[in-house]
Computed example of a mutant assay.
Amino acid sequence: MPKIVILPGDGIGPEVTAAAVEVLREVAPDVTFEEHAIGGGAYDQYGDPLPPITRDALADADAVLLGTVGGAHNSPWNLLPRPLRPESGLLALRKLLGCYANLRPVRVQPGLEHLSPLKPELARGVDILIVRELLGGVYFDQDRKIEGDTAYNTMRYTTAEVERVAKVAFWAAEQRRGRVTSVDKANVLEVSELWRRDVTALRDRDYRNIHLNHEYVDSVAMLIVSDPSRYDVIVTENLFGDILSDLAAVIPGSLGLMPSASLGDGAGLFEPIHGSAPDIAGKGIANPAAAIMSAGMLLRHGLKRSDAANQIDRAVALALREHPTPDLGGKADTKTFTRAVLNAMGSPSVG
């Protein structure tokens, strides 16, 4: 019986995660759930943003569903030493699970083009998958320091790290439209020269059916909002991927429409990309669509249940059209939207 570890986290995390679990129970009744703490709430309870009890539960998990981590900018959590801050719990979680490839789909739902800040003719039909390397680069390199009025971080990659995330991108492209854009800054950075060399060599060796294009990150930052339909799968390193995926998140019209999956050698991590939104936490108005779609990605990539994942995707698309939440210009609260998703799947109840 598959085991999913639920990490509701902070802010609106518990609300949107509860909605996603309700949907998962409907389409996967054989799955067991085990809930644990992470982030600021975990620090308050255990003095650790990723406490031992949570780490132990992850050891035999088949998948992990995460809510949100962190608080407001003026939260006391932000005054803690960096290793004790909520976000450090998230980084530690990714490293513990070995999740080196982050998949972020950027899709404009049919009939919802008007929500995008882009012109409808640009937004219509946008379907991009950003594959971000998640365990390397400046975020994880230990060669970092502040010394007086000087500070430095180091970006470092090995061929093995580049190849393993590129394989995920090429595999994804095989399931989609067969095009990969590798993003770097090879005209300036030696690490990007290695990245470009290794991605090209891998394609030429193992994925000759995939069309590979290389583009500089500054150019992609412009083109992803001015000509988004040019992209199918984008693969890039950690820092560039962080920035580009947040930029691309504006295209569908709301962060509440952006799920994600982080994959590696063990249990996958599935989470909405939006923040903890402490200003609306507890009000029952948070958009749970991204969390519910993340549950769909969990079924597809974590449990290999594509039919159930497709069922969730169709139900969410219908609910978005008929019962939009306040961030999408509608009035549906969290429970109303969740009920609409369940109704679309044939269930009238919300727990």
Rank of each mutant, 00 (worst) to 15 (best):
Y207M: 09
F33A: 08
E163L: 12
K119N: 02
L93T: 02
G329F: 07
N209L: 04
G330R: 04
D141H: 15
P120C: 11
F140P: 01
G284M: 08
K185T: 07
G178D: 13
S192L: 11
G47L: 14
R104Q: 06
M155F: 01
D327W: 02
F270A: 04
N287F: 01
H301W: 14
E163W: 05
G275H: 09
P278F: 13
L244W: 08
R104L: 08
P86V: 02
G241F: 06
G256C: 09
L244N: 04
V168R: 14
G98V: 07
A317D: 12
A201I: 13
A291C: 09
L239G: 00
G41L: 09
G284C: 08
E147R: 12
D232P: 11
S192R: 07
R156K: 10
R132Q: 11
M293D: 04
R104I: 10
E22W: 08
Y207T: 10
R55L: 13
D143E: 11
H73T: 12
G275R: 06
A151H: 01
S219G: 12
M293K: 08
V69T: 00
R55A: 11
A201M: 13
E34S: 15
G296R: 09
V217Y: 05
T200C: 12
P29W: 08
A249P: 02
P110F: 10
G71H: 00
V138L: 14
F170G: 02
R177P: 05
D313Q: 14
P86N: 06
T17Q: 05
G111L: 06
I12A: 03
T68N: 03
I12L: 10
D206P: 06
A19G: 09
L58D: 01
V106I: 15
F170N: 04
L342N: 08
A19P: 04
M222A: 13
V108H: 09
V199C: 11
S219F: 14
M222S: 09
V350K: 00
D204T: 08
V16C: 04
D242F: 07
L122Q: 14
V220C: 11
I285L: 06
P228E: 09
M155E: 14
S294Q: 04
V106L: 12
T154G: 07
A28V: 07
T154Y: 10
V138W: 00
V138G: 05
G67A: 05
L90M: 14
V131A: 07
G329P: 03
P86E: 01
L91D: 01
L257N: 02
S75I: 03
L90N: 01
A166W: 02
R25A: 06
E147A: 14
E26D: 11
R321E: 15
L129Q: 06
K283R: 15
G40Y: 00
L96P: 00
Q45T: 15
V220F: 11
Q142A: 13
A286F: 03
T150E: 13
I53N: 00
L79W: 02
H211F: 12
F270P: 01
H73R: 10
R94N: 04
I224L: 15
G40K: 00
R196N: 11
L96M: 11
D60Q: 15
Y46P: 01
A267I: 05
G266D: 13
V183F: 06
P105A: 07
G256N: 05
T32G: 12
